[in-house]
């Protein structure tokens, strides 16, 4: 099972209701805006969270999305880390599940999965 300490994250979203999809989308959007990401990045981040939330709701019924700001690389590029955690059935074909190569999956078979996308912003 993946170790995620909720206290390390800026936002923790519980997904168990269809409404939570729209709520998580909005929260992610505000968070990205607050951290000065470009409009295109804000939209992408919000869309990614929306997709993740829906996957949780559809396939695992409930789960959590963790969001935090992160500085990566030697030049401290500001990124947003999004982790979705659930106890869903897992992915049979990871290749198929990864869309367009934009997303980077760390799979934990049988215990749900983690989508991890880092969007780069300029500060």
């Amino acid at each position: 099972m993946l170790d995620v300490n909720p206290y390390d994250y800026d936002i923790v979203l519980k997904i168990k209701d269809e409404n939570d999809i729209a709520v998580s989308r909005q929260m992610a959007k505000n968070f990205a805006q607050k951290n000065n990401f470009s409009l295109a990045d804000v939209t992408k981040i919000a869309t990614a969270v929306s997709e993740l939330a829906r996957n949780i709701y559809r396939y695992a019924k409930e789960g959590y999305i963790y969001i935090r700001k992160k500085e990566i690389g030697s030049d401290k590029t500001v990124a947003i880390e999004i982790i979705a955690c659930d106890k869903g059935p897992g992915i049979e074909n990871v290749e198929l599940a990864v869309m367009g190569g934009v997303y980077n999956i760390r799979a934990e078979f049988g215990v749900g999965f983690v989508w991890h996308k880092e969007a780069h912003g300029q500060l």
Binding site: A40, T43, K44, M99, V102
Partner: peptide
């Protein structure tokens, strides 16, 4: 369609 939305849709294929 907003430009950012168009780009996101296009990049998701």
């Amino acid at each position: 369609i907003q430009p950012a939305v168009a780009l996101t849709l296009a990049q998701m294929g």
